[in-house]
């Protein structure tokens, strides 16, 4: 496997360092050749920077990409926004030599050049395609058999598909495959592909952001899922933080929000507190208790089944 730089982005490192912790733990658990690279800035966020100054959006992303060109490594990000923004600019610059030359004439002044020769991926499709389901299954000590998990993809893990090219943009499968590989049921639901709506919280429309969080959480509460799985710090902010705000106002949902890396880490046998689960606003206590119980039943029956099989082989009356 080619070495890759991990692109944390602003939100994880500034607001949710525990998500960085669980990500590092699973990367190390799989012995993956990742590294931290000096010099990255904000990806930058499209909905902020592109709306105001498209040229600067392109230039900033191109500079980040040129750093991996220089280091000769691929890039993987545990943030959907970062992955999508970088891939979008990458594909736009490949389509326009004029724009590429313009960007490079500026990057030259700081000793960089955009080539865009290396892969840029989000962590989830990276695990699916590069690590692979069999290798993942091999690492699981405590799978989630019997658990019902609802996946929230996050728009920018899969769209725009012409740039990300990693899954069906309207019927994605890879995250589902990974959750199933961990033993859980991937619960299908009406609002599965609905946008989280966090963006509304960045344009002075908090009530509308809550409205969007509610749409999904209400359905998941009715379906009695054990948790929501996602892999984007903005979506996490929307469903953990804003769910907590609503619960404080008396609206109860009780849907714990688990990061892909936290679920994987748990299934690999890492302790919840080491993975940073105690930093969540919405507690995962019930989720963990049910999982313990089911896992106990699972290993007891496995044990019984083994004894039954052994019995038939030895003593014949």
């Amino acid at each position: 496997m080619k070495d890759f730089a991990i692109f944390w982005g602003c939100t994880i490192q500034a607001r949710f360092p525990f998500l960085e912790k669980s990500t590092r733990m699973v990367l190390e658990g799989f012995n993956l050749p990742y590294r931290d690279l000096d010099g990255f800035t904000c990806c930058p966020e499209k909905s902020l920077v592109n709306n105001i100054d498209r040229g600067l959006w392109v230039l900033t992303a191109a500079r980040n990409i040129s750093l991996i060109d220089k280091a000769g490594v691929d890039l993987v990000s545990p943030c959907t926004g970062c992955a999508s923004n970088l891939a979008t600019v990458n594909s736009e610059l490949h389509l326009s030599n004029k724009e590429k030359d313009k960007v490079n004439s500026i990057l030259k002044e700081v000793g960089l050049e955009f080539k865009g020769k290396n892969k840029l991926r989000h962590l989830v499709p990276f695990f699916h395609d590069e690590v692979g389901i069999p290798a993942i299954k091999n690492k699981l000590l405590k799978p989630f058999n019997g658990m019902r998990i609802a996946i929230h993809y996050g728009c920018h893990m899969i769209r725009p598909s012409h740039a990300l090219k990693n899954d069906d943009p309207l019927d994605p499968q890879k995250f589902d495959n990974l959750i199933r590989a961990m033993g859980a049921e991937s619960v299908q639901y009406m609002t599965k592909l609905l946008c989280c709506g966090q963006g509304l919280d960045r344009v002075d429309q908090h009530e509308n952001a809550l409205h969007f969080a509610r749409l999904k959480l209400k359905e998941l509460k009715a379906l009695k899922v054990d948790a929501m799985a996602l892999c984007c710090p903005s979506c996490y902010l929307q469903f953990d933080n804003n769910q907590n705000l609503m619960e404080k106002e008396g609206e109860k949902f009780g849907v714990p929000i688990l990061y892909f890396t936290e679920l994987l880490g748990l299934a690999m046998g890492y302790k919840p507190e080491d993975l940073g689960l105690d930093s969540h606003r919405i507690e995962a206590t019930e989720f963990l208790a049910k999982w313990e119980r089911l896992h106990g039943e699972l290993s007891r029956t496995t044990d019984l089944n083994r004894q039954l099989e052994e019995g038939f082989g030895i003593a014949q009356p």
């Binding site: 602003c10 939100t11 960085e20 500079r63 500026i106 960089l112």
Partner: peptide, 29 residues
């Protein structure tokens, strides 16, 4: 950037020091 790495929280979690920001070169370009 849209936020700087939260140094104390990172330390508490046992995370390594965050990689250097590219702010200086960014401002130049």
């Amino acid at each position: 950037r849209l936020g700087e790495p939260a140094a104390p929280a990172r330390k508490k979690l046992g995370l390594p020091e965050a990689a250097k920001s590219g702010a200086e070169d960014f401002k130049k370009i």
